[in-house]
Design a protein around this nucleic acid. Sequence first.
RNA 1: GGGUGGAUGGCAGAGUGGUCAAAUGCAUCAGACUGUAAAUCUGACAGCUUCGGCUUACGUGGGUUCAAAUCCCUCUCCGCCCA
Length: 374
Amino acid sequence: MNRIKKLKTRLGDIKIPFFMPDATRASIRGLTNNQILASGISEIVVNTYHLMLKPGANFLKNAGGIHRFMSWDGPILTDSGGYQVYSLIHKNSKLGEVTEDGARFRSVLDGSWHFLTPEKAIEIQFDIGSDMMVVLDDPRPPESSFEIQEEAVYRTIRWARRCKVEFDKQIKKRNLQNKEPLLFAVVQGGKHIDLREYCAEQLVKIGFDGYGFGGRHIDENGEFMDEIIKITANALPEDKPKFALGIGNPNDIIRCYFHGWDMFDCVIPSREGRHGRIFFWNDLENIKKKGIKYIEKNGDYKSLYDTMNIGNAKFKEDFTPFCEKCDCYACKNYTKSYINHLFSVKESLGAQMATVHNLRFYSELVEILRLEQN
RNA sequence: GGGUGGAUGGCAGAGUGGUCAAAUGCAUCAGACUGUAAAUCUGACAGCUUCGGCUUACGUGGGUUCAAAUCCCUCUCCGCCCA
């Protein structure tokens, strides 16, 4: 395999693989930019749907773009709102409807109606000031029938084409020829290999800067879909970055990486941290020395790490850090006992430190994966 | 001293004859979380159990009743009013 080693963006190169935490509403909940950077994270994801509702696309444009607005200098990927088509509409029809033209959303903030077409999704991402854009796609629940997934694939392809046309139009309109953002398309098709391959093939024909894996990557039994993930990656050009959207837990990221996926984003480190779950390494020194595959067992890398719920009573008098080997601010300064206390009294510093630590865990994870290339 | 209201599970607080091992909230103990409607949600929370039940429970002790947290009496404690 001759996979790429870096992703070129208008704000510089990013080593592959990399992980982006989700700053959905222009914030990694609870953290300052310095804390994010100090956790080894240089790229983040923001969300088109949530930002168009508040503070609004036009507002962000007038504010000078998302980078200036949130004071983040690194590359920013904008998710298109495609996932919200799924989570807010396909999972709850009261919150909107999807037609061929686009997705009609009811704002989760005030009930007002908003229309997101493929063209508008792209235009808003330009307004936001995105460095890496994602086409509007149409993901469906994983348990959907073949027919439903097939329909989603056709629509995703048609929408991707419209996005591409709009993208080129906006580049000219905004004179961005020398500082183009990247545009990613998203492969759908659920658990059906032929749909995934067809979708990939059609998207590649249109031509994008990178390609994403959309929809769920685990089946209805919670089983990781190795074949689908591997075959989808193989159906995409070797020289293009491959973005596994929304993935995932550390084990899933590692497996996806070995199947050809390069970039990841997920709410897990931030959300689960906020909820008290802490990731920690079991045998980091040996992993670094012997390579990550040394720990592999039946395709799994679960023994690499473990989690603890820091709110549990057993940590009340544990005066050691989350992880002795970790160099994050939380581990350098605080004990489990203290963080346990912060969670117990609902002091937000607890959630903040848990998030800082989990982000460092994730950045360390991709650093370990980069060693595999050499 | 006289009158009056009250005492419910770790806490707060519903219930005022049977459907009450007792609403609800908090606290406690666990669990979940995968392109964030999530600082959220779920479950457990008297004891025992062969999971059908059983035992002990609504300040104390007695009583009425087929049946009492709920009605009556005694006592203890707390609040309020009058002297």
